[in-house]
Amino acid sequence: TGIVNVSSSLNVRSSASTSSKVIGSLSGNTKVTIVGEEGAFYKIEYKGSHGYVAKEYI
């Protein structure tokens, strides 16, 4: 489990790349469930599926 550490919002992406499609966003202080790691990204549970967020903001 981690907490989103941004002042505005954090993009949730379809894969572990900054060039991948943005599938949603999370507000600061949102609790997320981390299910894996891939490079500079965490794989998280997101809306019944999975998404990826940059580690530096969790």
Rank of each mutant, 00 (worst) to 15 (best):
G28F: 12
S17F: 07
K31C: 10
E37S: 11
V53F: 01
A40S: 12
N29H: 13
E38W: 08
A16F: 04
S19T: 12
L26E: 01
E37L: 08
K55I: 05
E56R: 12
N11A: 14
V4W: 04
S19A: 13
G51L: 01
Y46W: 14
V22W: 05
V22T: 07
G2N: 06
K31H: 11
Y46I: 04
V22P: 06
S14T: 09
K31L: 13
S9N: 12
V53N: 00
V32N: 01
G24E: 02
S20N: 03
I34H: 00
K31D: 06
V22R: 05
S49D: 09
H50W: 12
I3A: 06
S20V: 03
S9P: 11
A54Q: 15
T18M: 12
N11H: 15
S20R: 02
A54H: 10
G51Y: 03
F41E: 01
F41S: 03
T18N: 15
G24T: 03
S17A: 08
K47Y: 10
K31E: 13
G2P: 05
N5C: 10
S49G: 14
N29R: 07
G28C: 08
S27R: 13
S49I: 10
T30P: 03
V53G: 02
I58P: 02
E38C: 09
S27V: 14
V32T: 02
V12Q: 00
K31Y: 13
E38H: 08
S14M: 13
I44S: 00
A40W: 08
S8A: 12
I44V: 06
G48R: 06
V53W: 01
G24A: 04
Y52M: 02
I23S: 02
V4Q: 04
L10R: 03
E38D: 12
V22G: 03
G28D: 09
S8Q: 14
V53R: 01
H50K: 05
N29A: 11
I58L: 06
I23W: 03
S14N: 10
I3E: 06
V6Y: 06
V35L: 14
G36F: 04
A40Q: 12
V6A: 12
S15E: 15
G24K: 02
V4Y: 03
I34N: 00
L26P: 00
V32E: 00
Y46L: 04
K21H: 12
N11V: 15
I3T: 11
A16K: 03
S27C: 10
G28R: 13
A40P: 09
S17C: 08
R13M: 15
R13Q: 15
G28Y: 14
T30H: 07
N5F: 06
V32I: 08
E38F: 09
G28A: 14
L10K: 03
G48E: 10
S27M: 14
F41M: 04
S7T: 13
S15I: 06
K21I: 11
L26G: 00
G28W: 13
S25L: 14
K31N: 09
V35F: 07
N29C: 10
E45T: 09
V35Y: 07
V53L: 04
I23Y: 03
I58W: 04
S7Q: 14
S25A: 11
K47S: 09
I3M: 10
R13E: 04
S49T: 12
S17D: 12
T33L: 08
N11Q: 15
E45H: 08
F41H: 04
S8T: 15
S9L: 12
S17I: 06
N29K: 10
E38N: 07
G24R: 01
T33K: 12
F41D: 03
Y42H: 03
V53D: 00
E56M: 10
S14F: 15
Y46A: 01
H50L: 09
A40G: 14
S8L: 09
K21D: 14
H50N: 07
T18V: 13
S49Q: 14
L26V: 10
K47C: 09
N5K: 10
S7P: 12
T33C: 09
N29M: 13
T33V: 14
S15K: 11
G48W: 06
K31M: 14
E38S: 10
V12K: 00
K21Q: 14
T1H: 13
E37A: 09
Y42E: 00
K47N: 11
G2E: 04
V32C: 05
Y57E: 09
E37H: 07
S25N: 11
E38M: 08
R13S: 09
S15L: 09
K21T: 13
S14E: 15
K47E: 14
E56T: 09
S49M: 14
S20F: 07
V12M: 02
V32R: 00
G39K: 06
L26S: 01
N29V: 06
K21V: 13
V53P: 00
S17Q: 08
E56Y: 09
G36H: 05
A54G: 09
S14D: 14
E56V: 11
S15Y: 09
G2M: 08
K31T: 14
G24M: 04
K55L: 03
S49H: 10
V6D: 06
